[in-house]
Design a binder for these strands. Structure first.
Lengths: 207, 207
DNA sequence: GCGGGGGTCATCCGATCGGTCGATGCGGGG
DNA sequence: CCCCGCATCGACCGATCGGATGACCCCCGC
């Protein structure tokens, strides 16, 4: 059984999804939200497995922001974006906000069901047009760290302080800090914990 | 008589060990290696009983990889890791690579001698701090964090500072720090970067 | 020969972290 | 009923981090 929260500002769309999902025995819709704010509140309260999120929400925060807030909740549900458009900006912003999947409304119902179950299990599902764009983006966007920066990152992941990193690599603390600053820039973070987190997820480190 | 191969990228450390081991009548140092690659080659050529291996080797492969290759040799020598740090990651990787023992450089010389003879006989010797961690690992298989601690860890992996973690979870900074301290204990680290690293490797976090 | 990227180093300072006490409240198991 | 694990909070302090700046060197490509 997978529990769902719907979020779409269009009543007819919600009704349509409700009818569609009602035909699936192992999917239960816990609630509906007509705005991003409502979605965040209901996600925290109802604790569904998956949130089906539209990106265009009219008034208030948009779907990306709602996604960001929902995934920032403790033990957050997975957010499956279900929208009409597939522009690069939307896709990257949604993924960046923590969306687990990105489906187009033109998708066949069976695909939607499959994607919901995948999302509940934490697996990512992307509609074909979306997938190709993401792949293209990955190649260009993946941060390229220099060898030395990877050395620093490796020591950082061991939890060492700057002094110990410096000793391990036979350089000064000042140099370590300089490298760290650049690593933060490239990874889009501003703390060592964040850097390690991104590095592990991007598999930038051996082992 | 036990024959030894030293591997450490620091010349002074090798010299120190050489002098130290020279005072032991039934220990003979067959050779020294300044890099992992050299250690593997010399181990194959000199066939010592025991290889004393540092984990931090600067350039080239690290001590873990060198250990892995040496223990993969036909009729391999025993590898006794002798290093400065005792992080969980280092210990488990070294043991996983086939190390027979794991000593800290802060150890007393008599302990080193005893460990060398033990290693030659195939027995395992661990420094006290290392042993306690290994035991902890054996018992728990993996550290069991409370739900709340996982919440903290999740926010930590986003790179947030204590103040922001507190706000995200609606608690005070003091509470965040308390939880973090316990998380450090359980994961065997003492920094947030180390905690994130271990958490990611142990797959403690949803993702 | 000149620019630029990569690596190195230094100094300064406020903000933050990690450690260590102690303390409260609440729930369950003995 | 009492103890213990869990979660919560407060205060203190030294150590460390992050950010900003400016600088030097080496190598490579143009």
């Amino acid at each position: 059984m997978t529990t769902i929260l719907l979020c779409d500002d269009h009543v007819v769309v919600r009704a349509g999804l409700l009818a569609l999902l009602g035909s699936e025995p192992d999917i239960e819709v816990l609630g509906e939200a007509g705005s991003g704010e409502e979605a965040v509140a209901l996600a925290a309260k109802l604790r569904p497995d998956v949130v089906l999120m539209d990106l265009q929400l009219g008034e208030g925060i948009d779907g990306v922001e709602a996604t960001r807030r929902i995934t920032a909740l403790p033990q957050p549900p997975h957010v499956l974006v279900l929208t009409t458009y597939d522009t690069d900006a939307d896709i990257t912003r949604a993924i960046g906000a923590g969306a687990t999947g990105y489906l187009l409304k033109a998708e066949r119902p069976e695909e939607l069901f499959a994607a919901i179950h995948s999302a509940a299990a934490g697996r990512t599902t992307l509609s074909a047009p979306v997938a190709s764009r993401v792949m293209a983006h990955m190649r260009g966007t993946r941060p390229t760290l220099t060898d030395r920066e990877l050395d620093i990152l490796g020591q950082l992941a061991r939890g060492l302080g700057n002094r110990d990193i410096a000793r391990a690599l036979f350089i000064s603390e000042a140099t370590v800090k300089t490298h760290l600053g650049r690593i933060y820039d490239k990874l889009g973070v501003d703390t060592r914990a964040g850097a390690v987190s991104v590095a592990k997820e991007q598999r930038l480190l051996p082992s």
